[in-house]
């Protein structure tokens, strides 16, 4: 598998993850706001693992497309920076069990960030496919 195929297959995986993640995050936000389930924080931990995987993906993408697609690489760099910052705030919120902060961070930061990331990924997939 060459670099381009690797980029496309990983990006498609990331795209699918983001599609599935949005409704799941919205449910989790609602549940956290209502303090409904005791295992919400456990579920949040799983979600954060997903964020971490996206973070690593964004890091890899920066180096893989830096030369061919510098503008999009910059978007990945910004994503990495933003998601790292949000994750650090979420860790802080988790340690003080601040449900409102965690729900807000997901609603007002993570979801819009994911929406933007999904657009970026779709764009890079299309651009690579069009050039090959």
């Amino acid at each position: 598998m060459n670099d381009q195929n690797l980029i496309i297959s990983t990006s498609e995986e990331a795209e699918k993850y983001l599609e599935r993640a949005k409704p799941a995050l919205e449910n989790l936000i609602r549940s956290i706001r209502e303090f409904k389930n005791e295992n919400d924080m456990q579920v949040l931990g799983q979600a954060v693992e997903g964020f971490d995987w996206l973070n690593q993906y964004a890091q890899s993408m920066q180096s893989l497309i830096a030369e061919s697609y510098p503008v999009v690489a910059g978007e990945f760099a910004q994503f990495e920076k933003d998601i790292s910052f949000i994750m650090s705030q979420m860790v802080e919120g988790s340690s003080s069990q601040d449900h409102i902060l965690i729900a807000d961070l997901m609603e007002y930061e993570v979801i819009p960030l994911f929406d933007g990331m999904k657009d970026t990924i779709t764009r890079i997939i299309n651009e690579i496919k069009n050039h090959s």
Partner: peptide, 11 residues
């Protein structure tokens, strides 16, 4: 347990 919001910090 630490500091926590009583209302949304965003809206």
């Amino acid at each position: 347990s630490g500091e926590y919001y009583l209302h949304s910090p965003y809206d």
